[in-house]
């Protein structure tokens, strides 16, 4: 049995403010194997900040500390920017919510993928071009030759997000962090994008951290779910057990969603309790059941 891909213990992100130190992430611990790990929470729960902290993308004055932040057993906490840059992209990639803001508007899509690939893997332009075409095909873009010559504003949101995924996958990373990758997409396109990510995890044995506010989607798509509240993980459970969640916060979130199949007169409203902030988290275990793959 191999160790987990990523091991996080007591991760904290703090920002100094006028009212004192504000901790956006307060002691998050989990392991990631070759699996689809969902991170769910409301805005301000620290879910995105957790993803950014792993990649070393928290900007000063934000400050990241952790007891352990290991990638394949190697500590990557607060590495110098030069070394971190080598890890970002090559070993851990990130897909953001809105592809419009992540793609360079004045470069063709082909050039961007080729550049991203050569930056990490080196090699000649022709080889990189072939790789880019393969990548676009891998994300099910039908006419990759044509798409290579277009500019970001000429493609739709779903296409843009697939291109972002292609770009992030070009260097064959071990871990993909996807921060609300489908929130800006229509439902039909969303499912296509999810299918692509799903296949990639299965075929390449990648670890996926899927950050989302959509509980039901995460339950259906991921293997394991972390539920975050106010900077902490309040519950960790297998995705198939989500509807048997025990933490009142998780239950409250699930109940407050209107459902097509179960009409109600009035939606139950989440009653927040103070002890959620600091009470004991409900976790099956920190470690993953899938260290070596699905």
């Amino acid at each position: 049995m191999t160790g987990p891909l990523l091991s996080v213990r007591d991760l904290r992100v703090a920002f100094p403010t006028r009212q004192g130190i504000f901790e956006a992430v307060r002691g998050v611990s989990f392991d990631l194997g070759r699996e689809r790990l969902g991170v769910v929470g409301e805005s301000g729960s620290g879910k995105s900040m957790t993803g950014r902290a792993i990649l070393g993308l928290v900007r000063p004055p934000g400050h990241v500390t952790a007891e352990r932040l290991d990638l394949d057993g190697q500590p990557i906490l607060n590495l110098p920017e030069r070394q971190m840059r080598r890890i970002r992209g090559r070993r851990i990639s990130m897909v953001m919510q809105d592809p419009k803001f992540s793609l360079n508007p004045v470069m063709t899509i082909g050039d961007q993928i080729i550049e991203a690939y050569r930056l990490h893997a080196g090699g000649g332009r022709d080889a990189a071009r072939q790789k880019a075409l393969d990548m676009l095909e891998a994300v099910q873009i039908r006419d990759p030759e044509r798409v290579m010559t277009t500019y970001p504003h000429e493609v739709s949101g779903g296409m843009g997000q697939r291109i972002m995924i292609a770009m992030m996958l070009a260097p064959d990373p071990e871990i993909l962090i996807a921060d609300e990758p489908t929130s800006a997409l229509d439902v039909s396109v969303r499912n296509e994008v999810l299918n692509i990510m799903d296949a990639l995890v299965k075929d390449r044995g990648m670890g996926l951290i899927f950050i989302s506010h959509d509980l039901n989607l995460v339950a259906q798509f991921c293997d394991r779910v972390l539920i975050m509240y106010a900077g902490r993980i309040v519950e960790t459970l297998a995705a198939r057990d989500l509807h048997h969640a025990r933490h009142p916060y998780t239950q409250g979130l699930l109940n407050s969603l209107p459902r097509l199949d179960a009409p109600v007169d009035r939606l139950p409203v989440l009653q927040r309790q103070d002890n959620w902030r600091d009470g004991d988290p409900l976790s099956e275990s920190l470690t993953t059941d899938f260290p070596g793959g699905l």
Partner: peptide, 14 residues
């Protein structure tokens, strides 16, 4: 809005 807030606003509108 977040889903918990969505529930509050939808109830308010109703």
């Amino acid at each position: 809005l977040d889903v918990s807030v969505q529930a509050e606003i939808l109830n308010l509108l109703a």
